[in-house]
Each structure stands twice: as structure tokens, then as C-alpha cells.
Design a protein around this nucleic acid. Structure first.
Lengths: 195, 195, 195, 195
DNA sequence: GATGAATGAGCGTTCATTCAT
DNA sequence: CATGAATGAACGCTCATTCAT
């Protein structure tokens, strides 16, 4: 019975990868990631066949973490608006709590070697959030739009707003509020007049 | 900024860089870019001190091109809503017309070696679009929000929508319409009810 | 030479090594050899201290097998010429029967890490063949040449001929005949005229 | 007009490769070869696309050198026997003069990544020697055998004999003589009696 | 200025060997 | 003893940048 493969080491590598990628970009050397994780460079390849495999798994894992975070503690019986507000609050709090993971996720999102399958899995990890949106758009202008497209639009707003909140922390509170209102208008607002 | 011998060569290199980066990512070799531009690898470094300098200049240039495209032919005296629609139409048409440049721009947007100064310059290049937004939000919920933040949110929606339109060309028309309505709601819609 | 737990495992490893080396060359990974043998990579090093040790043992073992094969069933009382023919027939049949072992042996023959001692042991393993040659050269031109040198020359012809027989199987029969005649002329032929 | 690619550097790399491969085997690191040649490791890849390409070119070049050496100064009008003796003398002298190249050539001959095309080209480089054999076998027992096969057999004897001459330099003279007689018997000797 | 050869640090990955279980 | 995870030196190759021509 050999030393069993350790889930801890695996997690340490993924976690280190997120930190290193956040600060050095996708070009970060596997050797640096391994060192940051406290394992030998060879060990990294025991747990992940290639750097690409590591990036893909990291991407899915981070997205899953985000997907779980945004719906954690969701007021199940609450009003749609409060549910969406919960989503948004959780989202921005996750971003604030794990800035490295968020930055890494942003890089991975546009990485060339994230496979279609990984993107699919990442998408699935956001099902919880999508369900909330589904409920909230029921009577709004988005009611007949494919849910995936709605999720994409809302995610884009959320991410852009968070970027700005990070860039100017002093205004974070105010922008958070503005962003939520914008999201809610996209989802449920009545058509705007032409002025 | 010295005036090098040939502005043509300079442009050829930037244009080639956009194509190559679009298809190979930011890791594209300078030698490949040079070959695509029809110049020697040594020449590339006559026009750009480093690869990073090239990326930064390309980023600003592409953003400036986009910034100019979105306001080209703007109906100056038109209604705000029609002006924003023009913005959106131009934006998505530019994306359709120059897919390589758009892809390159998307990569550059998240590149680690784009400097804060370049981002500032890129932002400035969108002044024309910002002006339009300024006019359209005058009586809406965004009226007291910093204009830069508004631009960021609207840009995010636009880019996300275009991504999806490219991913599913058959639905492009429908999504374009949905996206415009969403943008307009963000800018000028009345507050949405809580359902 | 300690007596390890299982002679079977040891043999399995050597046999696997021959197959793997035949198809992948001397650079074949020990892990691959171990897997082919159905043991763990760690176990390989229980039976052989180093990869070099394995190669050396394999070399000697294969040479011993060949040495035994060539004299198996030797017509003890036969004419010298028939004995040499037997040698040659057996040699080429062994090559045909165990192509992997033959290929591995060919690789090992030129390997840098086969020691002088192993080469000596391998040479000794061919004593049986040498004895036959000893008898056949008694009255020929090779009568005063060191037996080892004769063996080397004859072996070289045999191996070269077999290579060609494998390369062009359709001609194998014809070439086998030519090769035997050549061997016999080397051993026992009268001096050739100058033409 | 850039610095032109230098034939000298190219030759230096090939020559260094022969020396390093002779002493360290085919596993010799490209970096070591480059250093031995007095160029940077990067430069090696300017002249040869891959290590495999270098090995192939080296193989062909060495074989061509040997092929030229064996027929240099051939007594064109001489007797067949003297011509073959010339071949053999030149062959063993080349081996003595360039022991590294000979060792490298021996390694390359069995290398897995020498292509069929390279082997073909190497074969062609020995045409001069083949022509001599063609003339000398005209009335002998090899008269109806494919010339390539004859060349292979003779080469095998030559190489094996040279190996032994190198192993025991004190006996080189004697063995050279024995080897030549053997070669001549193979080519032109009358059938040997059965004893 | 233009060219492309020269450079060498750096990369992802492999693998013989060791060692905890 | 058997196992396979752990290790880290080493490898072939790339590429931004420099420089001789």
C-alpha cells in the first residue's frame, strides 16, 4: 500500500495556481506554481497530466466555487428582487474575499486552452444562479430570451461592476447599489421611454 | 515617439499582430508577427522597443478604432434613444467586420502587460461614445453616476452580447435586439418594480 | 546476486524489457517496462538496482539464450560443415522466432552502459558456438587465428545477413544460402585467386 | 544584409556532435553538443530544426565521408584483388584516423530516429565501394547475388574486424591481414570443401 | 535602416530513483 | 516485499532581444 494520492496536495496545487496566475498571468511557470504549493515540480504532473489540464480543472473548480457562493444562504421563499440582490451581494463578497481566485478566473475565462467541455461544465456550475434569474425574469422583458443569454448579460454587468469597485474601493458601496439597480432593470424593468 | 522611416511598415506590423494574436493568443511569437507583416524579425524591434510596447500600442489603436467606429455617422440631431441604438449597431457591425481585431482586443483587454496608462488612453478613445451616453442618461436613473462607470457597464453588456452573437450567428439578430433593449433599460429605464 | 522472492517476477521484468526495448529503444522508461511486466515501477528496483543493471543482465541473458539456441540439437558426430550449417540455421531460426529479443539484443550490443564485464560474460555464453567453429577451421586458413576473433567475424556475417533477411522476407531463403556459403568460405575456404 | 549563415558553424556543430555522441552516446544533450562546438544552444537549432534532424544529417555526412575515404586513391587500373585491398586499407585507416566519427557512426547506424530516407542516402554514399565489389565478384560465387547484400556482408566483416583491431591494437596488423583474406574469400574464393 | 543569425534564459515535461505506507 | 506517489535534475526546444553585416 503506497502513499495514497493526497487530496490536500491536489488542492494545494490548484490553490497555488490561482494565486500565481492571478499575479503572473497564464504564462506562470508550472515550477513556480509547484513551489508555491510546496511540492516538487514533478509532483504537479502526478496530479495533473499537463499544464492545460491543470488550467481546465482550476477553471471549473473556481467557477463551481463561485456558483456555490452566489446561492449560499439564498432566501428561498423571498421575493424575486431580494433573491437577485442576494445573488449580487454574494457575488461581490466572494470577489472581495478571494481576489486572487477572481483574478485567476478572469484570466482563465479568456484562455485559449480552456476546452469547450470545461466551459460547458463551468456553465453547469452556475445553474443555481440561473434558476434565480429564471424566477425573476418571469414577467419582465427577458421572459422569452434563452436563459443562458440572460445569465451571460447579467454576469458581464456583475463582473464589470466588481472590477470598478476594486479599482476604486472608496466608491464600492455606491457602485454596488447602482449595479444592482441596473441588473434589476435589465431583468425586470419596464421598457424605457425614448426620452 | 520618433517618426520612423515608414509608417506603412509600422501599420503592417500592428495589423499583422492583431491577426496573429487573434488566432494564436498573446503568446504569439514576435517572429511570427513579423513574418505575417512581411518584415524581418529584427525590423519589428525598430518600430517597437519591446513586445510589450507593441501590445500596448496595438491595444490603444484598436480601442481608438472602435471608439471612432461607434460614433461614425452618428445622427447628431437625433433622439437619444436613436443615438444609443446607432452606437450599438456600429459596435456590433465593427465586430462583425473585423473579427480578428475584435478577438485581439478581447485578449489585450485582459493582458497583464497592458499598462495603466494604456488603459487610460484606451478609455479616452471612447470619449465619443461616452458623450452619447451622457446625453441619453440625463433624465434616467444613471444621471448621477460617474460617466466612466456607466460606460464600463454598457461596454460590458455590448461585448458580452456580441460574444454570444458570434457564438450563435443564427440568433444574432434576435439577440442584438434584446441587448439593445437591455442597454436602454440600464441607461434610461424607470426603476423596475419588485414583482 | 541475492535470491529475491520471486524468480518469476524477475523473469517477467526481463522479458518485458526485451519487448519494450525492441519497440521503443534503449530510452524506454523503466515505468513502461514495469507496467508491461505487470509489476509496479518500484518493484523493478527491488529486482534490479538500476536501469543499467537491468540492461546488463538482459544483455547477458539474451546472449546466453542465443548461445544455447545455436547449439541445441547439434549433430555431435556430424561433419564440420554440417555442424556449422546447423549453427547458422539455428541462429536464423532463433532470430525469426524471437524478433523482439533479437531487436533488443541488437540495441544492447551497442549500448554505452553495457560493461566490459557483461561483454565478457556474453562472449563466454557463446562458447558452444565457438567450439563448433574450432572444429571446422582446423585445416582452413583460420587455423592459427585466435578463436575469439573468428567468432566475431562469423557473428558479424550472421547478424548482417539476418538483418537483410528480415528486411526482405521474400528473399530470406536465397540469402540464407548465400550467407552460409560465405561463412563456410571464411572458415574453411582455400585462398582465393587474385582473378 | 545580415550575418550570413556560416558553413563553418554548421560543420563545427556536426563535428562536435560526432565527438560528443562517440563518448556519451545518442542521449547526449544538445546543450553539450552546442558547447563543444563553441556555439550557444539556441544556435544549434538555427542550423538544425531538431536533434533528430542533426542526427540524420550527421549520419549521412559521416557515411559520405567514409564512402569517399574508402575509394580515395583507388588504383583504377589495378587488379580486382588490389582494389579490394585498397578499400579495406582505406577503411581501417579512416577508422584509425577518426575514431570518434567511427564510434558516432556505429551508434547512428542503429538509432531509432534515422529515417529510411537517410539510410537510403547513406547507402548511395557507398556507391564507390559497391562498384569495386561489383568488379571483384564478377567471376566468384557472389556473382549472382544482389550487390547491396554483398556490400552489407563485406561491411559487417570490415566493421567487426576494425572493432577488434581497436580493442587489441597490438594485434591490429595481424588481424587486418586475416580480415582481408576473409573478405577476399567471401568475394572471390572457390567453394570450400566439406572437410 | 533592414536583415536574419546569434544568444541564453526559460519553459513544460520526463524519468530513474527513493521512500512512506 | 509490494506499491505508486514524490522527487528534482535534466532534456529538447522556444523566443524576445541583440548585433554583425
Amino acid at each position: 500500500m503506497p502513499r495514497p494520492r493526497s487530496e490536500d496536495r491536489r488542492n494545494a496545487i490548484m490553490s497555488a495556481a490561482a494565486r500565481v496566475i492571478a499575479s503572473q498571468g497564464l504564462g506562470a511557470a508550472t515550477a513556480v506554481i509547484a513551489k508555491e504549493a510546496g511540492v516538487s515540480n514533478g509532483s504537479l504532473f502526478v496530479y495533473f497530466d499537463t499544464k492545460t489540464a491543470l488550467l481546465n480543472e482550476l477553471y471549473v473548480a473556481l467557477k463551481a466555487e463561485l456558483g456555490a457562493a452566489v446561492v449560499a444562504g439564498l432566501p428561498v421563499a423571498g421575493e424575486a428582487r431580494e433573491q437577485v440582490r442576494h445573488l449580487w451581494t454574494q457575488w461581490s463578497q466572494w470577489a472581495a474575499a478571494y481576489p486572487y481566485r477572481r483574478r485567476a478566473l478572469a484570466q482563465l475565462q479568456v484562455a485559449d486552452d480552456i476546452t469547450a467541455e470545461s466551459r460547458q461544465r463551468a456553465h453547469s456550475a452556475m445553474t443555481g444562479a440561473a434558476d434565480v434569474l429564471e424566477g425573476s425574469r418571469a414577467e419582465g422583458p427577458m421572459r422569452d430570451v434563452p436563459l443562458g443569454f440572460v445569465l451571460v448579460l447579467i454576469s458581464a454587468i456583475a463582473e464589470a461592476a466588481i472590477d470598478e469597485m476594486i479599482r476604486e474601493p472608496a466608491q464600492a458601496e455606491a457602485r454596488s447599489s447602482v449595479a444592482f439597480d441596473a441588473i434589476w432593470r435589465v431583468l425586470a424593468g419596464p421598457a424605457a421611454p425614448a426620452l
